[in-house]
Design a protein around this nucleic acid. Structure first.
Lengths: 186, 186
DNA sequence: CTTAAGTGGAGGATAATCCTCCACTTAAGC
DNA sequence: GCTTAAGTGGAGGATTATCCTCCACTTAAG
């Protein structure tokens, strides 16, 4: 693949991820191409279908999740409590919630992209290993599974549509902290 | 208003509320009319614009919120802890989250319907009064506001699109319970 | 310099919803 | 019953939006 083509491919994934989070699952292809600063034909060349594009995003997110779990595993022994909090916050920062409708889309596609399913499985496994550490350390109730935990975090970081009531807080770190406290054993 | 007209109006609000929760903010008018078992003309007669329909839903939800706060206030003195838990769960059962995109829609409308703004204010006030009881009783951190609390509950009860991974749990009461624990003072 | 990979964006094809219009139905009062 | 005005259904033209192909043009890389 030519180097300029690769750069544009990456720009497209980034643009798509950003717009999906911002505007929901129906962003027109033209908007994604425009955001990436390329023509529509380029988008179609790299990602013939929406599914292909979403798989591209999932690959990127998958790599970031593995980063989080790896870093957490390395830090764990020296500062378990700090590691745990950082891990949850880092996972929250990935804004997994923005992907919820996209995951639904891929899963509902005629041909469920097995690449996406594989990556999902690996990410859940890695998160599960961190959760085991947390359970042993007493930071997390034993009955909470990796799917539940990740989905919970995704739900509370899911982007809201713009709600122009001035009193609606945009910062959600208090909710994430409440989540961390709420999943602790009594 | 003729009695049959009134019945159809109510059916339309119920149908719209149900479909909005199920299918998101873009449900076509034809689907709402069909769900309510009436013709499109009837929908347009009662609710000339989408905003009117949404205000209708908000009126219904508003009444239900006041029910919750009133009941909670009456029970409070005999069983504070039980009242509090029931209140939060009842509020969660209203699935306020399903309204999030609709609220955004009304607020973004050219003419923000002041009726909706008024009802929102009253509901927030009533919830705030219950939260004050809870703060005094030590169930809730003092710094959490009525808007934050309601939004938090809305966020965690917001409907997910259908995600056909068999391991995704549909029950969310564990999240609500974690929320209740998470908002307690240390 | 050559050339094949890569690109842009106009525009026809397709799809979906909106919302009006008017002949028909029915509740409710007499 | 009968009258009548409120209420109703749903077909279909108007409008809007996105999809996705096509081909002449550009450019990286040897």
């Amino acid at each position: 693949m030519r180097s300029d083509a690769m750069a544009k491919r990456n720009a497209l994934v980034a643009a798509a991820r950003h717009l999906y989070a911002d505007r929901g699952p129906d962003v027109p292809f033209t908007a994604i191409a425009a955001e990436a600063g390329v023509g529509i034909a380029t988008l179609y060349r790299h990602f013939p279908t929406r599914s292909d594009l979403i798989v591209g995003i999932i690959e990127q997110v998958h790599a970031e999740i593995l980063d989080c779990t790896t870093r957490c595993g390395e830090e764990w022994d020296s500062h378990p409590a700090g590691s745990w909090l950082r891990f949850v916050r880092a996972l929250a920062d990935l804004r997994l919630g923005a992907l919820i409708p996209q995951l639904a889309l891929t899963a509902l596609a005629e041909t469920p992209p097995e690449e996406a399913v594989r990556l999902r499985g690996r990410a859940l496994g890695a998160v599960g290993r961190v959760l085991d550490l947390a359970k042993t350390a007493g930071f997390l109730r034993r009955e909470i599974t990796a799917v539940e935990f990740s989905l919970g975090l995704a739900i509370i970081t899911r982007p809201l549509p713009a709600i122009p009531f001035s009193d609606v807080p945009s910062d959600r770190s208090w909710l994430i902290d409440a989540f961390v406290r709420g999943v602790r054993p009594d």
